[in-house]
Every structure is written in C-alpha cells, then in structure tokens.
C-alpha cells in the first residue's frame, strides 16, 4: 500500500498541475502584454479618449471661464452654431482651404518627385532642396511668407509692381487672404509630401521600367501605366494625410491673419481656439471640436472605402 501510493500520485498530480499551470501562463502572458502596452494606453486614455468624451460632454453645456459646466443646454450649442453666420463662414473657408491646398500640394510634390527620381548627377542636392520645407516650422514659414505678402515692402508685390501690375493686399483683402494662407500651407507641406512620394517612386521595381523600355514605351506612357498605378498606395496615404493636415491648420492663421479679414481665414481649428481661449465659450467651442472630429472621421472612412477599391496594391 505504502509503496503503490506515491506511484499513483506521481502520475496523477502532474496531470492536474499542468492544466492550472497552463492557465496561469495564459494570465501571465496577458499581464505581460498589458504591461508593455500600459504606458501608451494610459496616455491615450488620459490625453485622447477621455478628452474626446469630455469634449462631447462639454458640448451640451454652458461653462464658466474656468471651463466648469454651469447650465445643461442640450443641443443648444449645436443649434446656435449651425445658425451662426460666422460658423458658416468658417466651414466654407475650411472646405475651400482644403480644396485649394490638397490637390495643388500633391500635384506639385508629385511633379518634383518625378523630376528628382531621375538618376542624374547632383540629384541629391535637388532632393535636399525639395525636402527642405519639411524642416521649417509653421512659425518660421509663416514669418517668411508674412514678409513675402507684405503690402509695401513684400517681395511678391514688388514683382507685381515691376511687371506693371497693381499691388495686392494679400493678407488684408478678403478675396485674397485665404489664397495667401493656402499658398503658405502648400509650400510648407511640399517637403513632407515630396519625401514620401519620392520614397514611393523609389520602391517601384526597376524591372518594370526595363521591360517597358524593351517594349519601346514612351516616357509619358511609362508614367501613366507604371508610375502612377504603382504609386497609388503612397498617393492614397499622402492624400489622406494632406487632407487631415489641412483640417488641422492653425499656426499659419495665427501668425498671418488671425482669422481675418472678415473671418475669411477663420478655419475650424482657429475658430475653436478663439471661441475657447479668447471668448471662453468652452461649450460652443466643444461643439465645433466635435464637428471637426466627425469631419475627420468621415474623411478617413471615405478614404478607406475609396482606397480599397481604387488603390493598386502589389
């Protein structure tokens, strides 16, 4: 009896143990995974998800200057916002601004990237120049263009006068201000867009071009039939990023126009900023922020849906 008992135990006990050990291991790997993700999750929670819900919450209230909720007003902030001509102007300017900047930035950057993708002597120099605006901050770029658009001593008006045209109040004329801001933005975003597109071009397999050369394809035929289709994932990415960036424009406005003249450059983020931190209307500002969030959400979803169908992935 005494002899056989330990024998039975030695085969039975490990059997039971190893199931529970397995479960413990699963819990341990889960804990480990969470531990690795914890810092990111925590910060996303505190500085992204919580503020997003808080914004939604605030948008249903009136607040005091410290941002504490005072009166629940339901959808009043939204209704007031949609009825406000200033907000209409802001939305109109924002969409116009996106329309001005996105296609232009991408076309110019693509043109530069195609040029700079040729294997020529000294091409590195040109690539560096084209990339350079990526290293220039909003503040510095805005200051550069503030001078260029300066009504009396500015470089652009100087040229206009030289060729006998009338000078333009770029930043003070409601007709031109948004365009001026758009030009600044296009210039600023050129570096980044160029760099990404160039990377996309360079990752296209050179065999494709070589086989097209053997077939005697022309430069533009290759551009249309190889370059653009093979570049489509990159283009897709660049378009998404540029659109989202355009909706988030702030610094240029703050330095160049402060939203003026006549609110023509009061783009949505600037509008939120002014409403919240100049007028202390955190409720209505939050309502606008929610609109911004929804717009970007919709944009992203549309991009993905369209992208899935149109984009040519290898």
């Amino acid at each position: 009896m005494n002899m056989s008992n330990p024998m039975i135990e030695s085969t039975e006990i490990p059997e039971i143990n190893y199931e529970s050990v397995k479960r413990k291991q699963r819990i341990r790997t889960f804990a480990k995974g969470m531990l690795f993700l914890l810092p990111s999750l925590l910060l996303f929670g505190v500085f992204l998800f919580y503020p997003l819900f808080k914004t939604l919450y605030l948008s249903f209230f009136l607040t005091n200057a410290r941002g504490e909720t005072t009166v629940f007003v339901g959808l009043q902030n939204y209704l007031g916002m949609f009825a406000s001509p200033i907000f209409h102007q802001s939305m109109k300017s924002t969409f116009l601004f996106v329309l001005y900047t996105v296609p232009t930035t991408i076309i110019i950057a693509l043109f530069l990237a195609v040029l700079a993708n040729e294997k020529l002597k000294g091409i590195g120099f040109f690539r560096t120049i084209f990339t350079s605006t990526m290293g220039i901050s909003v503040a510095a770029a805005s200051v550069f263009w503030l001078y260029l658009f300066h009504p009396s001593i500015g470089f652009i008006n100087g040229i206009l006068e030289m060729i006998g045209m009338e000078s333009i109040g770029w930043l003070t004329d409601p007709k031109w201000a948004l365009i001026a801001v758009a030009v600044t933005t296009i210039w600023m975003n050129l570096g980044f867009t160029f760099l990404v597109l160039l990377g996309g071009l360079q990752s296209i397999d050179s065999y494709l071009y070589e086989s097209a050369d053997i077939d005697g394809a022309s430069y533009f035929y290759k551009l249309r039939r190889i370059t653009i289709p093979m570049l489509s994932p990159t283009l897709f990415f660049v378009i998404t990023v540029t659109i989202i960036n355009a909706f988030q424009t702030f610094g240029q406005i703050d330095i160049l126009t402060q939203g003026g003249p006549q609110n023509t450059t009061n783009l949505i983020v600037y509008s939120i900023y002014r409403e919240a931190f100049t007028n202390y209307q955190f409720g209505t500002a939050s309502a606008q922020a929610i609109v911004l969030f929804v717009i970007i959400l919709i944009m992203t979803i549309i991009q993905f849906k369209l992208g899935e169908r149109k984009v040519h992935y290898q």
Partner: peptide
C-alpha cells in the same frame, strides 16, 4: 502548446 497527450523528457512530464 501541446493540445493533447503527454510529453516526457527524462521521465518527467514537461507539457507545461
């Protein structure tokens, strides 16, 4: 992971 059965190395169960 071993889905079923027993693995012994040197006489000891090592599944876990």
């Amino acid at each position: 992971d071993i889905s079923g059965g027993t693995l012994k190395i040197n006489g000891n169960i090592v599944n876990h």
